[in-house]
Design a protein around this nucleic acid. Structure first.
Length: 297
RNA sequence: GUCCGGGUAGCUCAGUCGGUAGAGCAGUGGAUUGAAAAUCCACGUGUCGUCAGUUCAAUUCUGACCCUGGACA
């Protein structure tokens, strides 16, 4: 049984690096259960393209926070942290060890350090920002932000609509500047002492695995899955913006049967770019890097 | 075979009224505080198809040739 103050194990790594396999092995050896930190696998129905664990995987180790959200339901890093908090407590209450595993690193950070105590997204405000940006351009919206929060505006690129809108939203909702919240917060608080375990892999090796995974998913019927999801009206939900689903939706939109070879290439490239961003995120973190297949722990 | 396009960055193409060229995508690096598989930032020398001609100067104009798409035979 896990000691009360033992660190929370967190398995990280790029997409297709083999995080899940490592996490499952750790579960088997250390009486653990997995908490998935994955911003696509949380959604129901988006199965093939998000790489959800197989039945065999689930038989080896329970996984939480997969299939817990409807595609149209609002979901964000803070909500993930809350859900994960509950799951961790439950797992520990059962005398087992929670092991967080996933590639959505903002969510992991939110769990470990918490976020600025600002309110969640306000769809009306965001819609207004969209309209405003259409009218005066993204640079115009950025100027709006500069008028109320010069510091935040200075840090953000005028084109970074998502963050500009959020900073504006936070001020409009609370009267407090985003830059003030962030300065006060600074990810200083530690909600969980974490032990970060990373799956180390050569880039060429990872690229190969990414390609193989894309091919496998397409062969497993990804296009048909996406077609059904579109038919059910999920076309404009969050997970359809995810790597791969976006490309498949685009190909289907084009009308005729998608060119699978071309689609495979597009998804492979988008996934590599994603993996690169993940690498950047993890770069300077205090991670214990383990070679794939390591059984050290 | 004839006629008309086109051959410029890894790919798709723009452009230079003659002064050796630039976008998108790809690639590489970076940022990341309730959209994060999202969003954004930075980085661009390449025999401008080949050979010759005109010119101070040709990727740009002219000619021939090669390749390629279409139309006509």
């Amino acid at each position: 049984m896990e000691q009360a103050n033992e660190p929370l194990w967190v398995v990280v790594g790029a997409t297709a690096s083999g995080k899940t396999e490592l996490a499952i092995e750790l579960c088997e050896r250390h009486n653990g259960e997995i908490i998935s930190a994955d911003s696509v696998q949380v959604y129901r129905y988006f199965d093939i393209g998000s790489g959800k664990p197989s039945g065999a995987d689930l038989a080896r180790a329970p996984q939480h926070l997969i299939d817990v959200i409807e595609p149209s339901e609002p979901m964000d890093a803070a909500r993930f942290a809350d859900l994960a908090e509950v799951a961790i407590a439950e797992i520990r209450a059962r005398g087992k060890r929670p092991i967080v595993c996933g590639g959505t690193f903002l969510w992991v950070r939110a769990l470990i350090h918490g976020l600025v105590p600002a309110p969640p997204a306000d769809p009306q405000l965001r819609a207004r920002h969209q309209a405003r940006a259409l009218e005066v351009g993204r640079a115009g919206l950025h100027q709006d932000l500069a008028r109320v929060d010069a510091e935040a505006a200075q840090r953000l690129a005028p084109n970074d609509f998502v963050r500009v809108s959020r900073a504006l939203e936070v001020f409009e909702l609370t009267g407090v500047r985003m830059s003030e919240w962030q300065a006060a917060h600074g990810f200083k608080r530690v909600r969980h002492v974490a032990r970060l375990l990373g799956v180390q892999r050569e880039k060429a090796d990872l690229d190969q695995r990414i390609l193989a995974r894309c091919q496998g998913m397409l062969r497993a019927g990804w296009v048909a899955e996406a077609e059904q999801l579109l038919a059910r009206g999920f076309g404009s939900t969050r997970p359809f913006a995810a790597v791969g689903y976006k490309q498949v939706a685009l190909a289907l939109q084009a009308g005729k049967a998608p060119n699978l070879a071309e689609l495979e290439l597009l998804i492979y490239r988008a996934t590599r770019i994603f993996a690169r961003r993940q690498r950047t995120w993890l770069r300077d973190q205090p991670i214990e890097w383990l070679p794939p297949g390591s059984t050290k722990l």
